[in-house]
Nucleic acid binder design. Structure first.
Lengths: 241, 241
DNA sequence: GAGTGGTCTAGACCACGAG
DNA sequence: TCGTGGTCTAGACCACTCA
C-alpha cells in the first residue's frame, strides 16, 4: 500500500517528466497543493521532500517550490587522471580558494600520516556555477609543499604552484562515502541539511610513500557523480586519455 | 537558533558517544522521550530520523529504537583490483545469487552498448551479514558470456564460471552517485526509504572495447564506502596488492 | 492485548522574500 | 503588509511485535 506521500510525489514527478510542469516553474503553494490532493500540509511537505531529495524540486523559503532546471551534474574524476587534472572537473566553472595554515589533528593527522600538531596548509576551495556554489574542497598539504604567501593567489595559480612543488605521485587513494552535510556545509553549498552529500577523501602519496596531499571533498548528492576509470595493465598498456 | 529537533538529536548523539547509551541498548519509547524532552512525537521522531541517517540509531517497527552496534562498514573495492576480486568485499559474508534471462532496454542497453532487446543474463546478488542484507548487486552479462544453466549454482560458482568465460578486461569504468533507494531496494536491504544509498554503476570492457559486464550496485549509505586506489604508472611499476 | 513505531491530521506560530 | 515556506503541536488511527 503506497503512502499518500509517495502517491503525491509520484504524481508530481510525472507532471514534471511529461512537461506539464517545466523547469523553472513555480509550483502552487504548499497550502494550495495540500488542498488539491486533500492532505494536510505536513503530508504534502513530505512529498515535496522526496522530490527535493531527487533533485527535481527546489524549495526557496518565502518564495515557493520550483521545478529545478536540469543542472549539469558535477563529475568528479578519480583515479586514472593525469597529474594536472584538477581535483574536480570544474571546466567552465569558477573556483575561489582561500589558503590558511592549520595544525593536523585527529583524523586529518592520520590521513596525512603526520604527528598531531604538525603544521599544514589548508586550501579551502569553493566551486561555483554561476551564482550557485556546488562543490566544496578542503585540501591539506604539508607546509613545505605549499606555495609560499599564496593567500591571495587565485585558484588556478595555487594549483599550478602546488603541482610544481609536488614530487611525482605514486599512489592515489580515494574513499567515497555518503553522509548528511554538516550545517556549515549545508549553508555553504546552499543545500538542505537533509540532502545527502558525496564525501570523497583523497590521499595522494609520492614514490617514497609520503602523503603529499589529503583532500576532503563534499559534493551535493543530487547533482554529483564520481567516475573512476581503470585501465587494466595487460600485455599492451593502453594510452591514458 | 538551533531547532528543537537538532537539540534533541545532539543530546542523544552525545549520550551515545559518552557511553550513557550503549550499542544494542533500546531507547525509551518515542512517547517517553517526547515527554522527557517536552516536545511532540513528530518532533522527537524527526530527531531520531537525524540519528538514523547518521547510522547511530536503528528503528525497528513494533519493537523500539536501538543504538546501532558499530557495524563493520562495507567496503567496495573499485578500480585497481585483480580480476578475481569479487565485486564487493564480502569476505566473511554470504551472498545469494539468482540468475535469470532478461532483455536489454533503455539505460541498460546503452551501458552494455547492445541494441535494445538483446538477450542478457541477469545475476541478482544479495549480500548478507548474519541475518541482515547489506548489499544489492545486479550484474548483467551478454548471454554468451554467462554460465549455462546456472540458475541453481551458488554465488561463488557463478562468479568463478563468469571469470573463466570472460576475456581479459581492458577497462573498468565505475560511476558513483548518491540517491534514495527505490521502495524495492529499501525493503530488500531493510533500510528506511529516507536513507540515501551509494549507487555504483560498473562497466567492464575487454581489449576489443566490447562491454562484457554491466553491474548496478546499491549499498546502504550509512555503512558503505567505496575505495579506489590508483597506482600511477611511473618509471617503476609498483606491484599491485 | 499491550506496547511499539508509521502515518496522518488540522491547525498554530515564526522567519523569510517581495511589493 | 502579505504570501510563502519552516517548525511545531496534540492528538488520531493503523501495522507490527511479542507475550
Amino acid at each position: 500500500m503506497p503512502s499518500r506521500r509517495d502517491t503525491i510525489a509520484d504524481d508530481l514527478r510525472d507532471r514534471i517528466a511529461t512537461g506539464r510542469l517545466n523547469p523553472g516553474d513555480r509550483l502552487p503553494s504548499e497550502a494550495h497543493l495540500a488542498a488539491q490532493y486533500m492532505v494536510s500540509t505536513p503530508t504534502l511537505r513530505n512529498a515535496l521532500a522526496v522530490l527535493q531529495a531527487e533533485g527535481l524540486v527546489e524549495k526557496v523559503h518565502g518564495k515557493g517550490n520550483f521545478v529545478r532546471r536540469p543542472v549539469r551534474r558535477i563529475t568528479y574524476l578519480g583515479g586514472a587522471r593525469t597529474p594536472d587534472t584538477p581535483v574536480v572537473d570544474l571546466a567552465p566553472l569558477s573556483v575561489t580558494a582561500r589558503t590558511t595554515k592549520v595544525r593536523a589533528r585527529g583524523h586529518l593527522a592520520a590521513l596525512l600520516k603526520m604527528p598531531t600538531g604538525s603544521p599544514l596548509t589548508e586550501i579551502l576551495c569553493l566551486g561555483h556555477e554561476g551564482e550557485r556554489p556546488h562543490s566544496l574542497a578542503r585540501i591539506y598539504v604539508p607546509c613545505d609543499l605549499a606555495p609560499a604567501a599564496c593567500e591571495s593567489l587565485p585558484y588556478e595559480a595555487v594549483v599550478t604552484r602546488l603541482m610544481e612543488l609536488r614530487p611525482p605521485l605514486a599512489e592515489v587513494r580515494e574513499e567515497i562515502s555518503v553522509r548528511l552535510p554538516t550545517s556549515e556545509e549545508a549553508s555553504t553549498l546552499r543545500i538542505s541539511s537533509a540532502l545527502a552529500v558525496l564525501a570523497i577523501t583523497r590521499q595522494a602519496a609520492d614514490t617514497a610513500g609520503r602523503v603529499v596531499e589529503a583532500a576532503l571533498l563534499v559534493l551535493p548528492g543530487d547533482r554529483a557523480d564520481a567516475v573512476f576509470t581503470t585501465h587494466h595493465m595487460l600485455d599492451e598498456r593502453p594510452a591514458e586519455a
